[in-house]
Every structure is written in structure tokens, then in C-alpha cells.
């Protein structure tokens, strides 16, 4: 009897930081809110979550949504499992 997670329950996501271009891989449950992934990424890279923005194909991701809900959007946008999320640092200026 295998105790490993089945692929149907999880989704593989890749987060790329725009400053250095380094990619971080995440395997998350589909029912978990994306905010958790964002916080985990910021904690791993020692970044301030308030100054970060996460986008997929130039479209900003909402924190309250889950990958399951996003996957519905992904189908509409033509995205597949294992695609890339961009982590952009917010810039401010006068």
C-alpha cells in the first residue's frame, strides 16, 4: 500500500524571480491557497511578501485562489501543469 501523494492531487509549479532569474520548484496540493506558496517562496528567498507580485503570463495572481481554481483559468489560457509563475519585485519612485 503506497502512502505517496498521487499526481492528481498535486500540481508542479515553477516560480522564477525576476531579479536573478533563479527558478524555484514547488509541488503543492491543488486545494491549497496560492498565498501559502507565495509565502513559502518569500521565506525561502528571504524576501518581503508585501513588496512582491506574482504573475502568470503577465496576469497578476490572486492570493486567495487555489491552484485548482487557477487550473480552470489555465485551461482557458492554455496553460499546462508545470508551467512558470513570475515573481516580480515591486518598484516605487517619485
Amino acid at each position: 500500500m503506497s502512502r505517496g501523494r498521487s499526481d492528481e492531487d498535486t500540481v508542479k509549479l515553477k516560480v522564477q524571480y525576476n531579479k536573478d532569474g533563479v527558478q524555484t520548484f514547488f509541488r503543492v496540493k491543488r486545494s491549497i491557497k496560492l498565498q501559502k506558496l507565495m509565502e513559502a517562496f518569500c521565506k525561502k528567498r528571504s524576501l518581503d511578501p508585501k513588496s512582491m507580485q506574482f504573475t502568470f503570463d503577465g496576469v497578476g495572481l490572486e492570493k486567495n485562489k487555489t491552484p485548482e481554481e487557477l487550473l480552470l483559468n489555465f485551461v482557458q489560457l492554455g496553460m499546462e501543469d508545470g508551467d512558470e509563475i513570475d515573481a516580480l519585485e515591486l518598484v516605487d519612485g517619485a
Binding site: 508585501k50 503577465g58 497578476g60 518598484v91 516605487d92 519612485g93 517619485a94
Partner: peptide, 21 residues
């Protein structure tokens, strides 16, 4: 595509730096 919360919208006030979003 882009959403702004109140914190970032507040950067439109005079004297505060403007956020890129």
C-alpha cells in the same frame, strides 16, 4: 490583469513614492 489594494493605491497621494502596479 492587475489589481491594486489600498496600500498601493495610497501611493497616488502627494508626497509618497508611486508603485509600479
Amino acid at each position: 490583469v492587475v489589481a491594486i489594494d489600498r496600500h498601493h493605491f495610497g501611493s497616488l497621494a502627494p508626497g509618497s513614492p508611486l508603485f509600479d502596479d
